[in-house]
Design a protein around this nucleic acid. Structure first.
Lengths: 192, 192
DNA sequence: TGAACTTTTTTACAACGTGTTGAATAATTA
DNA sequence: TAATTATTCAACACGTTGTAAAAAAGTTCA
């Protein structure tokens, strides 16, 4: 995805890590996680198996690091959406930027969010969305409806992530902009 | 959970299968799926490792069978809720029965739905909920809002399952009845 | 360019998990 | 009790894991 790295780093490391990551994404499209071995990853990445261990402790560790990178990317995007606009419509813009980012990296997100093989990624995104919603509804929550705030937050954040997942699984039949609008509407009437 | 078996079956088989299932649920509370081996399951279940293979092809196969049983249980419950009431309020009752069932088997559901270790179970429940909602909104969908029907279904079903998951993770701080009411309210305003 | 440094490869190893066998033992059924 | 069926035991070949040491290849910088 993006850099995250300003210090000079050996191009061999960059190359190897990219090869390994691509190989994993590749394999995740084809088979369940329990069929994916370091052997297969190395083979697919055209690197030596030992090299894998020079970069990651094991497959689990690798996925955690990738999920961390994803989370940083998404947080950056959402932060800059908040900065750009200060005229009320931030959450609509945030959603739109997020969906655009996901669409741009569709191959990646379809695998890590669209399949249920890598729950860490979904978990990470859910957490980010929950926090964003929590922050965003700090004042604006209408308790008058008789709905518990935490239930509304659970409801809204799962609805968002679930819709994104379904959208990915169906090969993104709507543009990010259109889906963002739909979601904003649904979200307004429902959650808060 | 329930029987699913009316024909006489060797009590040793019942005992062994129950021991194995309990062992898996036990282990899933303690460690990630990739740390769980047939060895460990057999050890925890106090059976011989070979016996495991007399009942299941592998751990994956075992989880699929357990998810299938869960799905059958839930479908039974939702069916009988539909039968019982014909006076409009079926979806509220269905939700209530479902949540009661989950609460009764809290230990089981907290593991298979509450942790992200067994996506098959969540997947199965999502499918059931999606189908129920799809059926239920066949006529009553208000297109006037400008919201796509499929988006609304994605949104509503993920919201439901996500809220249930969060409720389990937080050790069910609301009664099934209360949560069902909350969900019905949120669902009404939002999805359809 | 050449020398110092870092990364990758090669080969090898022990430990462990898998899935399957055939024969024994134990429990259930009738 | 006898016949049947489930479980255990011991053992096997095979693949995966994570680590090690040394050789080879690629990068950096004077």
């Amino acid at each position: 995805m993006t850099d995250h790295e300003n210090t000079r780093v050996d191009p061999r490391i960059l190359r190897t890590r990219q090869l390994i990551k691509d190989a994993l994404i590749d394999l995740l499209q084809e088979m369940e996680l329990n069929k994916i071995t370091v052997n297969r990853i190395a083979e697919r990445a055209t690197i030596n198996r030992v090299t894998f261990y020079l970069h990651y402790r094991d497959i689990q560790d690798m996925m955690e690091k990738m999920a961390q990178e994803m989370a940083e990317d998404i947080e950056d995007i959402m932060r800059s959406a908040t900065d750009k606009e200060s005229t009320g419509e931030t959450d609509s813009l945030m959603l739109e930027s997020l969906l655009e980012h996901i669409a741009e990296n569709g191959k990646f997100y379809k695998v890590v969010l669209g399949t249920r093989r890598t729950p860490i990624f979904t978990e990470r995104l859910l957490k980010i969305l929950t926090e964003a919603i929590t922050k965003r509804t700090e004042n604006s929550f209408r308790a008058a409806t008789g709905i518990q705030r935490d239930v509304a937050i659970w409801y809204g954040s799962s609805a968002l992530i679930g819709t994104i997942v379904a959208w990915l699984r169906n090969d993104m039949p709507y543009t990010p902009q259109y889906l963002a609008k739909q979601l904003t509407m649904l979200f307004r009437i429902g959650g808060k």
